[in-house]
Design a protein around this nucleic acid. Structure first.
Lengths: 155, 155
DNA sequence: CGGCATCGTCAACCTCCTTGACGAGTTCGT
DNA sequence: ACGAACTCGTCAAGGAGGTTGACGATGCCG
């Protein structure tokens, strides 16, 4: 690469965002490929709501807040998952505006399969990266996430 | 969270993908907010092609391959950047099917501003995370990326 | 020269998320 | 107790960033 100004080279060092973005995309593509092998109609974005569900019932708005996305987006996801028979929506007895979302019996069983798949992928990566680096990466990312979240609230 | 099966709890540990995805989204939102402060019509995805440009000329197909996205997607990005006056497209003298893409004079100047902005964000994060952790994170992500790329080719 | 690969583009589509507006229901202030 | 203000979930529209498939125009190679 001749005759490039030196400061353009610095772009390549400013590329945390790029690495982050690309890694996220590839990871998710790998995950969805695995998941759809056992559950062809599932979509990747569904998996992100699973950790926030339980058998008692949660409000969609709470899920949205915890995920950091809009409640409309959550509504769409829950609608699809309901259609797939993974979750049920019940009226919230304590607030007639609200719903409670919880696993259906069938959903709970399906989640176990999906979980095994995701753990398989994680295990595969652990084999390649080493468990130490993988958990360090997880930890560092979590810290980065916290900083970015704090920043988003102020800025 | 009462009456939750223990294996659902494991979902929360299988969440590298989630942390990754969310961190990428927040980082990029932060970046685009900064960038649009000095250049309102730029889009975040443009920045990912910048490191692959030079003043001599590169072929769109090469950029696509290096970015890991389709050449159609690159074509759209380059079209927008051309309209913004950042890059120029010239016929490739050595192959009449192909084009060469390079910085315009104005583009090179604009890139310097954008670069400063991105470096500012990186510096801000460095202040919060510490340079050691940040560069470690960068390195670990790069390794993860390499593994995922290798995996995608076989898979 | 004929067959095949490659370059870049058009068109259609997908995923995932956004903002804005809204009716229905709850809570707070006075 | 009653209106103002907020909150719950939904509808509609749209934006960003990709994808696949098909295509004409070249280039390369036997």
């Amino acid at each position: 690469m001749p005759q490039m100004p030196a400061d353009i080279e610095a772009l390549k060092r400013a590329s945390l965002g790029q690495v982050l973005f690309r890694a996220a995309r590839l990871y998710n593509e790998a995950a969805i490929a695995e998941i759809q092998r056992t559950n062809p109609s599932a979509r990747l974005s569904h998996t992100q709501v699973l950790p926030h569900l339980d058998a008692v019932g949660v409000r969609p708005t709470v899920i949205a807040r915890r995920l950091g996305i809009s409640k409309q987006a959550v509504g769409v996801l829950l609608g699809e998952m309901e259609e797939l028979g993974v979750v049920e929506r019940l009226p919230d007895p304590s607030d007639r505006r609200a719903h409670l979302v919880r696993f259906s019996a069938r959903g709970l069983a399906g989640v176990r399969e999906g979980l095994a798949v995701l753990l398989g992928l994680a295990g595969e990566l652990e084999g390649e990266l080493g468990s130490e680096r993988l958990s360090r990466l997880h930890g560092d990312l979590t810290v980065l996430l916290a900083v970015l979240e704090k920043r988003a609230l102020k800025g």
